[in-house]
Design a protein around this nucleic acid. Structure first.
Lengths: 118, 118
DNA sequence: ATAGTATATTCGAAAGATCGAATATTGTCA
DNA sequence: TGACAATATTCGATCTTTCGAATATACTAT
């Protein structure tokens, strides 16, 4: 039971575990885009984009709609956008603690100009 | 700038992209546990557990505290717990739409006992 | 110092992810 | 129909992840 849920979560994470796929999901945040539009906006190889879209489809992160010649993609559930937003905030909070750690280190050892030790 | 952020997000996702590591993070939800306690609760090989903990440490998902002989692990930031909670809800909502799709399919084709088409 | 316990790292094999090039599929329009 | 445009899939090379077995490190207690 919880086992199934854990497998599910890890599959979602795997689905998002690539910068290109994150970029795709972020572009789709405000509505659907065709594969071609994604390729253009991200400057991807056609095959590569299609492969990443296949990963997102397999994990049901994204949903497609065919319109004639084109295929429009959109996010299947807004929950994943929420997840990305949490991680954005998380990123900046980690960043600021890292910065203050660096600042503190600089105060303790004001002579050193490089961060390197040893 | 956004590039760095995307790389960061994908690294977090990679860090969580394994059922064992999710299980570890979930166990740590209510406070720290030693490596040995994690091994025991999850029934892992010692080396395997240590490797997964190394991944979580490398991604700064988890933080360690040495106490004598033992090493206690805890979650670095509660944000990640939030993420797991969102995915739990997401899982159940997907599950219920899947169930209703199946139910609908059964109503449309009541003769068929298998899900196979073609 | 030695033995014992807890944890981490290294190694090699197997499985999986990623990429671009090439090819296949599907739809449109003349 | 045939030519074209958009998207998907397959192939093979390369890189990464994962695992258990073996080994290393760090700490405690005698």
């Amino acid at each position: 039971m919880g086992d199934e849920l854990r497998r599910f979560k890890s599959e979602i994470f795997q689905g998002l575990a690539h910068p290109t796929r994150i970029a795709i999901v972020e572009l789709l945040r405000d509505g659907e885009l065709s594969a071609g539009q994604l390729i253009e906006k991200l400057g991807l190889e056609q095959a590569n984009a299609s492969q990443h879209l296949a990963v997102l489809r397999a994990r049901q992160i994204v949903v497609k709609r065919k319109a004639g010649n084109q295929v429009y993609y959109s996010i299947r559930d807004h929950a994943l956008i929420e997840v990305l937003d949490i991680l954005r905030r998380y990123f900046y909070s980690q960043l600021s603690t890292t910065v203050s750690l660096l600042r503190e280190a600089a105060r303790e050892a004001p002579r050193s100009r490089t961060g390197a030790h040893r």
